[in-house]
């Protein structure tokens, strides 16, 4: 399945891109996706705080992705 991933805020400083497409052969839950993103793609994301929205809905870590979707990686912003 195709995962269209959008990065926001300071996460973009780490990934270097604000949007990318990743392919994933098996269904995975968000906790697994999170550790995959950290271990395989962006180790510097370790310690960053972010929520993951699946098709515009923030989901808990046990939510399972099993079809093409859009993932938004959402850190909090501090500025005011």
């Amino acid at each position: 399945m195709n995962l269209n991933i959008k990065y926001f805020g300071r996460i973009v400083e780490i990934t270097g891109v604000d949007e990318e497409r990743l392919e994933c052969s098996d269904s995975i839950n968000l906790a697994e996706f999170r550790s995959l993103l950290l271990s395989r793609y962006y180790p510097d994301l370790k310690g960053e705080s972010f929520q993951i929205a699946v098709d515009q809905e923030v989901k808990s870590e046990d939510f399972r992705i099993d079809k093409d979707c859009e993932l938004a990686i959402l850190p909090p912003f501090a500025g005011g």
């Binding site: 300071r10 310690g47 705080s49 929520q51 850190p75 909090p76 501090a78 500025g79 005011g80």
Partner: peptide, 15 residues
Amino acid sequence: CVFPIPPKAGTIKNC
């Protein structure tokens, strides 16, 4: 509920 854990300190900068 939305942001239960604050970001890693040290890397946090302001405007």
